[in-house]
Structures are given as C-alpha cells and as structure tokens.
Amino acid sequence: MTEYKLVVVGAGGVGKSALTIQLIQNHFVDEYDPTIEDSYRKQVVIDGETCLLDILDTAGQEEYSAMRDQYMRTGEGFLCVFAINNTKSFEDIHHYREQIKRVKDSEDVPMVLVGNKCDLPSRTVDTKQAQDLARSYGIPFIETSAKTRQGVDDAFYTLVREIRKHKEKMSKDGKKKKKKSKTKCVIM
C-alpha cells in the first residue's frame, strides 16, 4: 500500500485542523484551538488504489514558523489553505509557496490551493482571484467548507493525484537520464 505524506499549511484560523478532522473523523470542530502540530493517518481508496494518507496539520501562528522547514522537508505534497473571508490569509499563500519551493529546492512541488469556509456569506476573496492565482502557479484550486464537508475529500484526493503525477514524471525523467548515460565512448 502506497503511503502519501501530505502537509496542510496556511495562516492561523483558516480551518486547516477543521478540514483535516472532517476528512479523518467526519465531524466539524467549530471551536478554535490553535494547533502546534498534529499528525493523522487514514486509509482510503483513490482511483481504485488503496493508500495510506499521513497528514500533518501544522501551526499557522507566526511564533511556530521555525518548525516549518522541518515538516516541509518531509512532506510530499501540500494543501495551501486560505479562508475566503480573510484576504490576508490569501496573500500569505505566496509566502508559504515560496518557502516550500526553497526548502524542497524545487520549482515543481505537488500543491493544491484550497479556499476554505465557502459556506460563509462574508467572502472577501473572489473565486476568480483564487483561480487566477492557482493557474499562475500551475496547481489545482478547490473551494471547501469544513463545516458542510463540501470539497473536503476532493481537496485531499486531488493532492494525492498531483503527487502521483509528480512521481510518474520524475521516474520518466530518471529513465531518460539513465538511457543517456548508457551511451559509451570508444577510443581507438
């Protein structure tokens, strides 16, 4: 069974824990209790493949930012979460993405942009803004509501699919490099 290491990042209060708990335990946590770091595991079937999701729910508070490099190193894919009623959390996505790329030393890291709290009427981040940002990053965008469960499975499952595509691409690139290195030079 394939294991996928997913990391949920975003500013404090955007609903990272609520999304994760909704996926794992099928219930909505409405009281806000700032996370330092929590880890969850769940076995699911995605596109006919049974897999184990190892999900790291991270601290959004700035005082825990020193811990970010460590979990970013171990993560295979990242859910970059903002709240649709919090423009600052949307603007912060850029910083999370840049930090992930720096730590992973790669421009090509599996990510999904997630606009959470889409059940709320007080939207300050337009869907088109988020779609445009995701398009500019070359990553999928999904709106979710941890409260109603809308888009929750889709967000995590899409990230797994992005990781699969990335692994497939990397193995193809690896095979191309191996083929090239088999060419021999004969000096007579």
Results as ranks from 00 to 15, higher is better:
125 V>Q: 15
126 D>H: 08
126 D>R: 03
126 D>S: 09
126 D>P: 04
126 D>F: 10
126 D>T: 06
126 D>C: 10
126 D>K: 07
126 D>W: 04
126 D>N: 09
126 D>M: 06
127 T>A: 11
127 T>N: 11
127 T>F: 09
127 T>K: 06
127 T>H: 11
127 T>I: 11
127 T>R: 07
127 T>Q: 10
127 T>W: 09
127 T>D: 14
127 T>M: 12
127 T>Y: 10
127 T>E: 11
128 K>F: 10
128 K>V: 11
128 K>R: 11
128 K>D: 13
128 K>E: 14
128 K>Y: 09
128 K>S: 13
128 K>T: 11
128 K>W: 08
129 Q>G: 13
129 Q>M: 13
129 Q>K: 14
129 Q>Y: 08
130 A>H: 06
130 A>C: 11
130 A>L: 14
130 A>W: 14
130 A>K: 02
130 A>N: 03
130 A>V: 11
130 A>M: 13
131 Q>T: 11
131 Q>K: 10
131 Q>F: 07
131 Q>G: 09
131 Q>L: 11
131 Q>E: 13
131 Q>N: 05
131 Q>S: 10
131 Q>I: 08
132 D>Q: 08
132 D>S: 09
132 D>V: 04
132 D>W: 04
132 D>Y: 03
132 D>T: 05
132 D>G: 06
132 D>L: 07
132 D>H: 08
132 D>K: 07
133 L>W: 07
133 L>F: 14
133 L>E: 10
133 L>C: 08
133 L>H: 07
133 L>A: 09
133 L>V: 12
134 A>G: 08
134 A>S: 07
134 A>D: 01
134 A>R: 01
135 R>T: 10
135 R>N: 15
135 R>H: 12
135 R>M: 05
135 R>I: 03
135 R>L: 10
135 R>K: 14
135 R>V: 07
135 R>G: 08
135 R>Y: 08
136 S>R: 09
136 S>P: 01
136 S>M: 14
136 S>E: 15
136 S>V: 09
136 S>A: 12
137 Y>I: 13
137 Y>T: 04
137 Y>N: 05
137 Y>D: 07
137 Y>E: 03
138 G>D: 06
138 G>R: 04
138 G>C: 05
138 G>N: 12
138 G>W: 00
138 G>V: 01
139 I>L: 06
139 I>T: 02
141 F>G: 01
142 I>G: 03
142 I>L: 10
142 I>P: 00
143 E>D: 13
145 S>T: 09
145 S>P: 00
145 S>R: 03
145 S>E: 05
145 S>L: 01
146 A>L: 00
149 R>S: 13
149 R>Y: 13
149 R>E: 10
149 R>F: 03
149 R>V: 07
149 R>L: 02
150 Q>S: 14
150 Q>N: 13
151 G>Y: 06
151 G>R: 04
151 G>S: 05
151 G>N: 14
151 G>L: 10
152 V>M: 13
152 V>H: 02
152 V>C: 10
152 V>L: 14
152 V>Y: 05
152 V>W: 06
152 V>A: 05
152 V>N: 07
153 D>S: 08
153 D>T: 09
153 D>N: 07
153 D>E: 15
153 D>W: 01
153 D>Q: 11
153 D>R: 03
153 D>C: 13
153 D>V: 09
154 D>K: 10
154 D>Y: 08
154 D>M: 09
154 D>V: 05
154 D>R: 07
154 D>S: 12
154 D>E: 15
154 D>C: 07
154 D>Q: 13
154 D>N: 11
155 A>F: 00
155 A>C: 11
155 A>G: 05
155 A>T: 03
155 A>R: 00
155 A>H: 00
155 A>Y: 00
155 A>Q: 00
155 A>M: 04
155 A>L: 03
155 A>P: 04
155 A>N: 00
155 A>W: 00
156 F>N: 01
156 F>L: 12
156 F>A: 04
156 F>S: 01
156 F>T: 04
156 F>M: 13
156 F>Q: 02
156 F>H: 04
156 F>Y: 08
157 Y>T: 14
157 Y>M: 14
157 Y>D: 13
157 Y>V: 14
157 Y>S: 15
157 Y>R: 12
157 Y>C: 13
157 Y>E: 15
157 Y>G: 10
157 Y>A: 14
158 T>D: 04
158 T>A: 11
158 T>Y: 14
158 T>G: 06
159 L>K: 00
159 L>F: 01
159 L>A: 06
159 L>M: 02
159 L>S: 00
159 L>G: 01
159 L>D: 00
159 L>Y: 00
160 V>W: 02
160 V>I: 12
160 V>D: 01
160 V>G: 02
160 V>Q: 02
160 V>S: 02
160 V>N: 02
160 V>F: 04
160 V>C: 01
162 E>S: 04
162 E>R: 07
162 E>K: 06
162 E>D: 02
162 E>N: 07
162 E>Y: 01
162 E>H: 09
162 E>L: 02
162 E>C: 04
162 E>P: 00
162 E>Q: 10
162 E>M: 06
164 R>F: 08
165 K>L: 07
165 K>W: 01
165 K>R: 11
165 K>C: 01
166 H>C: 05
166 H>V: 08
166 H>W: 04
166 H>N: 12
166 H>L: 11
166 H>T: 07
166 H>M: 06
166 H>Q: 09
166 H>S: 10
167 K>Q: 12
167 K>L: 03
167 K>H: 13
167 K>S: 12
167 K>N: 14
167 K>V: 03
167 K>E: 08
167 K>G: 11
167 K>R: 12
168 E>G: 13
168 E>D: 12
169 K>I: 14
169 K>H: 14
169 K>C: 13
169 K>M: 15
169 K>D: 12
169 K>R: 10
172 K>Y: 14
172 K>V: 14
173 D>C: 04
173 D>N: 06
173 D>R: 01
175 K>G: 13
176 K>F: 06
176 K>V: 02
176 K>Y: 08
176 K>R: 08
176 K>L: 12
177 K>L: 15
177 K>I: 12
177 K>W: 06
178 K>R: 07
178 K>D: 15
178 K>G: 15
178 K>N: 15
178 K>L: 05
178 K>I: 12
178 K>Y: 09
178 K>C: 10
178 K>W: 03
178 K>H: 11
178 K>A: 09
180 K>A: 08
180 K>L: 13
181 S>A: 08
181 S>L: 04
181 S>V: 07
181 S>E: 14
181 S>R: 06
182 K>W: 01
182 K>G: 09
182 K>L: 02
183 T>F: 00
183 T>L: 01
185 C>W: 01
185 C>G: 15
186 V>N: 15
186 V>R: 00
186 V>G: 15
187 I>R: 15
187 I>S: 15
188 M>G: 15
188 M>K: 15
188 M>I: 03
188 M>F: 01
188 M>S: 15
188 M>P: 15
